[in-house]
Design a protein around this nucleic acid. Sequence first.
DNA 1: CTGTTAGCGCATTCAG
DNA 2: CTGAATGCGCTAACAG
Lengths: 374, 374
Amino acid sequence: MPERFGRTEKHMTIKEIAQLAGVSSAAVSRYLNGGYVSEEKKEQIKRVIDETGYQPSAQARILRTKKACLVGVVVPKINSESISRVTAGIEQVLSARGYQMLLASTDNDPGKEVTYLKLFENYPVDGIILIGTVITAEHRKFLKNSKVPVVVVGQYTKYANCIYHDDYGAGKAMGKAVAAYLKDEMNHREEEQEETQYSGKVAYIGVTKEDKAVGVAREDGFRAGLKSLGVELEETCTREAEFTMESGYRAAMDLLEKNRDISILSCATDTIAAGAIEALLTYSRKQVPEEAKNSGGRMQYILGNSKIRVTGFGDNQFLKAVTGGIPTVHFGYKTSGIRGAELLLDVIELGEKIPVEMKLGFRMVRGQEEEDAS
Amino acid sequence: MPERFGRTEKHMTIKEIAQLAGVSSAAVSRYLNGGYVSEEKKEQIKRVIDETGYQPSAQARILRTKKACLVGVVVPKINSESISRVTAGIEQVLSARGYQMLLASTDNDPGKEVTYLKLFENYPVDGIILIGTVITAEHRKFLKNSKVPVVVVGQYTKYANCIYHDDYGAGKAMGKAVAAYLKDEMNHREEEQEETQYSGKVAYIGVTKEDKAVGVAREDGFRAGLKSLGVELEETCTREAEFTMESGYRAAMDLLEKNRDISILSCATDTIAAGAIEALLTYSRKQVPEEAKNSGGRMQYILGNSKIRVTGFGDNQFLKAVTGGIPTVHFGYKTSGIRGAELLLDVIELGEKIPVEMKLGFRMVRGQEEEDAS
DNA sequence: CTGTTAGCGCATTCAG
DNA sequence: CTGAATGCGCTAACAG
């Protein structure tokens, strides 16, 4: 093991390089930035820089030039497929236009969100993208007074350029699909004169109403979709969860314990849906241990005699891969990242002043079993 | 819609604040940093700052103080449970000690890794944590000469403080478990005198050998574990995949098409395993459409007559939730994040010079079915 | 307690 | 083409 690491070569400044090369610091600066330098001196400078491994302090450069070629992205969490899709989109246009991206994760804490926004504001970044969850008064205040341009992705706001998804429309489409499925099942049962009573009851696991997109628009749309086909969502069959699998698991367990006749369990996100699937798996093992054992624990959708279906939102590929896919909604997450970055760069580079609000559409994704049937 | 956003209030400097408050800039600086200021002037300054919404430029402060209370973390990808566990550990100790964390994702491109390391080196961060994949010559050069302290998590290196996992040991344990399972199955078949021939063949989907931890140590350990119980891994039954589900899917499909007698399919990561599960699901639907249909597409582990088991590494909770769990290995990812951050802060704050190499252990996680049996 | 002064490392004038 | 001088916004050291 070596005795110590790093800092073997003293941290050099442009001045020292200039001295070693026998030129002025300005010449070195020009050399670095493509200004006029004679071939002769170029050689000198190059030699010294190679020898010393000198790297100019971006820090100081930015203080001077006010240009970092960097944008900061504030995200609610790191371990999320939807968010990584957004950041992939952002990164794509950023790197194409010579920018780099720095991420700050708030771990679903809106307070931290503002903290990191302020950090970025006073840190050398040219712009900020906020992948929004809730927009509090603090957020609004920040957006109004920010020294650097900000675009908000995933939430509507009138205080900044924003790109959001048609959560209401998506919710409504899902509500209709769920209602249609229920009616269809009922008809089948009737035709086949099955004994088992089929309630056709639907349950919903939502999220905090403070999240206007996922918590409000998506759920309102869902209810509207159900209602349009005459199905009602009973309040005893709704729960509120965090944006985690564990929380979805708990909510689903509670729902299952208190309601024996749920036919379809819709969740506000695919992550929550994953927790719900886990709950069904656990619950069915508890309830019908024999059956579960015989099927190798794979009968997660079978609870007692009635089949419970789970639906989500977000089109999570991991979930689709390992379960075959549940009914869900595909949002253009990557697209929203792309558009968001483009918007931001237009403001940064072109000084675009006209505010933009952009709403992106969606696409229903049918689940495994329905696909098979078609 | 408002006409434009932000920058409504001109960007103020400490000097302007001082002028408005009728004091010196130094007084304002002291006010901001808790130095001596008379009550009277405090009032003045407070008033002006409140009115203007002034926020000091962290940028300039850091240029001066060489202290950012910030650490940069370079990660290979954003959408990963293991990595988010590491960053959660880092964040935990960082925030407890008054630091903030910035992330840079390289999207599995080792070239970008060095780019971002250099970015952080010249930006105001006090230290860097690299969640390592491959350590190239470029990496070593950087680690040797970095102006700021670096700790590497997830890979062994002698050029920096590092914290890594016992991948060899974990691989070996998994190899042994797989071999034991195979022998057990063979015995069962023999006892019950079943017709179906059971090959007991094992396949492995690994990753690039450039990744010394996952690609080399883990696989070498796995082979050693198998061998210790007399099982061999045939070269025709190995594939190399990227660290993605899609890649795991492709590798598994290829394996299944070219080898009809695989009994157990071990994967270098749970993410790859998820792709393999998807492949089994797809493949079995293709091969035995009737069975698959009858079981609602849930018979992903049944291929023809022989049961194929999938194993992974990483103890992915999402996978466990929706599938019930496959045999895998739990690494102390969060712990490595915690220790890594502690190490880094000790170097930053205490100037700790003694190099540290830390190896963390693991824990086997049995899959769903085995748990049931016990 | 306070204001003045001198840089942090760099890029950009402006004379030469 | 080039070097000396100036200042980005802030804090540390000093003298009041």
